[in-house]
């Protein structure tokens, strides 16, 4: 994990920004690029967002982890040209719960990928991107 406070910012992240990670096409390939090999779907990880996106260019997504010693969290969009959107190193004292906004080209699964106690955990949610226009 991270020993926060004494390190330079770039030292906090286990790795520099990696083109390989941000070019990977799937959850499996992202994990491989991060040096992991297998993951488990976990109820300790929560990914939330709207069921239907209001605007595919701005989709609010939150990830949270209840797993002890959560040190890393990432948001991935399955159907985007590259899966990885954003990754976060979580220093001690910071809650493993982050909200951001991502672009989605089409209806897709959105994954939260979490590293806790050295293990990789995943949760997924489908977010629909629709053409819109109808109404009661």
């Amino acid at each position: 994990a991270f020993t926060a406070g004494l390190l330079k910012p770039s030292d906090v992240f286990a790795a520099e920004w990696s083109q390989k990670v941000f070019d990977a096409k799937s959850l499996e390939d992202v994990l491989k690029a991060l040096g992991g090999d297998k993951f488990a779907v976990s109820p300790d990880v929560i990914v939330s967002g709207p069921d239907i996106a209001e605007n595919g260019a701005v989709v609010p997504v939150s990830v949270a982890s209840k797993a002890p010693n959560t040190e890393y969290m990432a948001i991935l969009v399955d159907k985007n040209p590259s899966a990885m959107s954003a990754a976060f190193a979580i220093p001690a004292g910071t809650e493993p719960a982050i909200s951001t906004r991502v672009k989605m080209g089409a209806t897709s699964n959105v994954h939260a990928l979490v590293k806790a106690d050295g293990k990789w955990l995943v949760a997924s949610k489908e977010i629909k991107v629709t053409l819109g226009g109808c109404g009661g």
Binding site: A4, G5, P81, F88, G93, T94, E95, T100, K103
Partner: peptide, 27 residues
């Protein structure tokens, strides 16, 4: 950072929305 302590360290790809937003909590 808060008082020189790093409280969040993030990496973004191009699929983060225009005018990025982040929210989180630290102790």
């Amino acid at each position: 950072k808060c008082k020189d302590k790093v409280v969040l360290d993030a990496q973004f790809g191009p699929s983060v929305s225009k005018d990025p937003f982040l929210s989180f909590k630290f102790k």
